Amino acid sequence: MRAALSRIVMIFVGCVLLASGAAQAVTPQEILPDKALEARARDISAGLRCLVCQNQSIDDSDAPLAHDLRVLVRERLTAGDSDTQVREFVVARYGDFVLLKPPFSAATLLLWLMPLLALAGAALILWNSFGQPTRTSSAAPSSGSLSADEQAALDALLRKDEPGKS
């Protein structure tokens, strides 16, 4: 009985430790008392990029700028802005780069096409390196490219090197 209880406690502690690794950077002071507004704030901030970390959302980042953006999002929601108005406000301040999923537009066209261009470039390099047969300089020239004197000298050398002939 004691061993089973010990295992249950260890499993519980392990689960708590695993869950704490995925904890977000939102501090208790930032959390809104209204659960609906807090859920909206989390949804918005999960789609905003930390401008310091760049590969994390502001919800996951401990950077001071991410903290300021989280507070800004919550202030705008508390003031009565819709989710779209909050996103537009942040984008107006920081540009499309602040969005983790920027919109497809003329300004972001290169950003969206860069992976395809890189893949096409890599395929072209590989094709040029391995796809086409290369000419080697060790190949014997055709007999049509030699003059009559050169052909005669070559034939004499070949007869000289044949086994059994001297």
Rank of each mutant, 00 (worst) to 15 (best):
M114C: 01
A106W: 02
G131E: 04
T134A: 03
T108G: 08
K101Q: 14
L100N: 10
W112L: 07
P102V: 10
P102S: 07
P133Q: 08
N128Q: 13
K101I: 09
L113A: 15
G131S: 02
L117F: 15
T134D: 07
L154D: 11
D155I: 00
I125C: 11
A123T: 03
T134W: 00
P103A: 08
A156E: 14
S142V: 00
L100P: 14
S145K: 00
P133G: 07
M114I: 07
L99I: 08
L124H: 05
A156P: 09
L109Y: 01
W127V: 10
P115N: 09
L146Y: 15
L109T: 09
S143Y: 01
A139C: 03
L124C: 12
L117E: 10
L116T: 06
E150N: 12
A139Q: 10
S142K: 08
L154P: 05
L154G: 07
W127Q: 15
P133A: 10
R135K: 10
A107H: 04
A107N: 08
S145I: 03
A123I: 00
D155G: 01
K101Y: 11
A120M: 13
S138M: 00
A118H: 02
S138E: 04
D149T: 09
Q132D: 12
T136H: 02
G131M: 03
L126S: 11
L124M: 08
P115D: 07
T134R: 10
R135P: 02
P115T: 07
F104R: 08
A140L: 06
L119W: 03
L100S: 12
L99S: 12
V98M: 11
T134I: 05
Q132H: 12
S105F: 01
P115F: 01
S129F: 01
Q132E: 12
A152H: 10
S145L: 04
R135D: 08
P102A: 04
N128L: 08
A120F: 09
A106K: 06
S145R: 04
S129R: 05
L113E: 13
S143W: 00
S147M: 03
M114K: 13
E150A: 15
W112C: 11
L110Q: 11
L116V: 04
L154Y: 05
P133S: 05
S129A: 12
P102T: 11
F130E: 13
T134N: 02
A118G: 10
S137A: 07
R135E: 06
L126R: 04
A139I: 07
S147F: 00
A156Q: 14
L154A: 15
S129Q: 08
A152D: 14
G144D: 13
A107I: 01
N128R: 14
F104P: 02
P115C: 05
L154M: 15
P133K: 06
A120G: 15
L119R: 02
I125R: 06
L116M: 13
F104E: 08
L116W: 12
T108N: 14
S105D: 05
A156D: 14
V98E: 13
G131W: 00
A107F: 00
S143C: 08
A156Y: 12
Q151I: 06
G131P: 05
L154W: 02
R135M: 09
A120N: 06
L100Q: 15
I125Q: 04
A120C: 12
Q132A: 13
L110Y: 13
Q151E: 14
